[in-house]
Structure formats: C-alpha cells, structure tokens
C-alpha cells in the first residue's frame, strides 16, 4: 500500500473530502431534483424515499440543495485560498528576501490586516458593494493574505538560512534560481498544509456570512443560507438544519484531517 495512505488522518480526510468533491461534481450534471424548483405540494416534508433528505419550506429538495451548496463552498474555499496564497507568498518572499524596511513595512501591514476582524471586513465590503458571494470571497481572501504572508516569511527565512542554499550560491546559482529551485519547493509542504486548513475555515466563514445574509443571495443554495432559513422551522422540520449543518461539519473535518495527514506524511524521509 502507498506509504501516505497508511496515515489514518490522511486516509479519513481523503475519504471525507472526496465525498464532498464528488457530490459537487455530480451536481453539475445531475441532481435528484432541480435545486431551485419550488414544489408547494411537498413543503417541509420529512426524509423519505422520494426526498432522501426531506424538503424545505418551498418544497425544494434538500439533497439537491446540499449538493449544489457543496459547489458553492468549494468555490469559495478555492478562490479565497488562491487569493490569500498568491498575494501572501509573494509578499512573504519579498519580506524574507529583502528584509530591513521591506520586511518591516510588509509585516506591519499584515499585522494591521490581521487585527481587522474578517466579519467586519465582509460587512464593510458588502455595505460598499452590496452583499454578494464574490464580495465574500474577496473579504475572506484579503483576510488570508497576512496568514500566508507570515507563514511564507517565517519558513522562507528558515530555508534561506539553510546550508543547501549557501551551497547553491557557491555553485553559482542566481538568486532567482535559488528562489524557484530551492526555496519554493521547500515552501510547498507547509503551504499545502496551511491551504487545506484555510480551506476549511473559508467554508465555515462563508456559511457564517451567508447565515448573516451577507454572502450567497437567494435563491442560490449555500449551506449557511440554508441554515439561516431553517431556523424558523427548527421544531417542525429539524432535517432542514441538520443536513446542511452536517455538510459543513463533514467538510471542515475532512479538510482539517487532510491537512494533518499531509503534515504527518511530509516528513522528507517519506517522500
């Protein structure tokens, strides 16, 4: 068996996230019902053979909506991590490499950003540009920049101090070559670990913001939005909140386990 798969965290994480990704992928071609089709005749139905996870107050199929919501969550996760990572890695590398004033200013700036609550940023952005899913992504993405900047800077400083960098320099490699051939590949593993964890946080954040009405706008399906709508019907139809809630927990757990698993596996001796 593959060495990586021996790790229990990695294996569980992989299975959990694979289910989510698969559900999202399938939803592009097929869902049991149209996720947004209302069916007044079947409102607030309990899970049954026809509606495996029940229906909501408009008679929409919850399974279909959870599947479509997965696309939404994955999209938010990906986009925010990409925004945060690209900007963060560039800034972090600049801070680590140039040092002095560049380091000082980049780090103070990221302190500032870091100190700014994400939710407040999101509210601010929605207040200015109006609530929408893309604004949520931008808000969370910006919030991620300092996370990746700090990580990149700290790890890159460590790598730049290692002897193999000096060996490369003594070999005649240029600073660009050193950055791309030595520093970045060695940065990759901590970045991937951080990315999986931030992915999980983004899923949670999007749910939270949508719950507050700042994120995904109706009628689009989002797990947070679904939870928000479900709260009024908590007592009569608990499945409305149980399943989106479960989906959130499932995804967050999956990506966190995956992150831990990768961390365990990325011992260079196991490559």
């Amino acid at each position: 068996m593959n060495k990586h798969l021996k790790n229990i965290n990695f294996r569980c994480g992989l299975v959990l996230t694979a289910v989510v990704v698969l559900a999202a992928a399938v939803s592009f071609f097929w869902t049991p019902y149209d996720a947004n089709r209302m069916d007044p005749g079947h409102r607030l139905e309990a899970p049954s053979f026809y509606h495996l996870l029940g229906t909501d107050q408009y008679g929409r199929d919850i399974l279909s909506r959870v599947m479509v919501g997965a696309v939404n969550s994955i999209f938010v996760g990906l986009a925010t991590v990409v925004i945060g990572m690209v900007a963060g890695v560039v800034l972090g590398l600049i801070a680590a490499y140039i040092g002095k004033w560049a380091d000082e200013s980049i780090m103070r700036l990221s302190d500032l950003l870091f100190g700014f609550p994400a939710v407040l940023t999101a509210i601010l952005i929605s207040a200015i540009w109006g609530p929408s899913i893309s604004n949520v992504m931008v808000a969370i993405g910006i919030f991620y920049i300092p996370v990746f900047t700090r990580l990149t800077r700290a790890v890159a400083l460590g790598i730049w101090g290692r002897e193999f960098i000096e060996a490369a320099r003594a070999s005649g490699a240029s600073e660009w070559a050193i950055t791309f051939r030595h520093v970045l590949p060695n940065l990759l593993s901590p970045l991937i670990i951080q990315a999986t964890i931030q992915f999980a946080v983004a899923v949670l954040a999007e749910a939270g913001l949508s719950y507050l009405g700042l994120g995904t706008q109706p009628p689009h399906a989002s797990w947070g939005r679904m939870l928000y709508e479900a709260q009024t019907f908590m007592e009569i139809s608990p499945w409305m909140c149980i399943f989106p809630g479960l989906a959130i927990a499932w995804t967050v757990l999956g990506f966190n386990l995956l992150g831990d698993g990768i961390r365990d596996n990325l011992d260079p001796y196991m490559l």
Binding site: F164, E166, H182, P185, N186, L188, P268, L271
Partner: peptide, 8 residues
Amino acid sequence: QASLDPRM
C-alpha cells in the same frame, strides 16, 4: 545532509 536540498 544539510548541504543537499532534500527536495531535489
């Protein structure tokens, strides 16, 4: 050990 890049 230290002077060879472990990822190369």
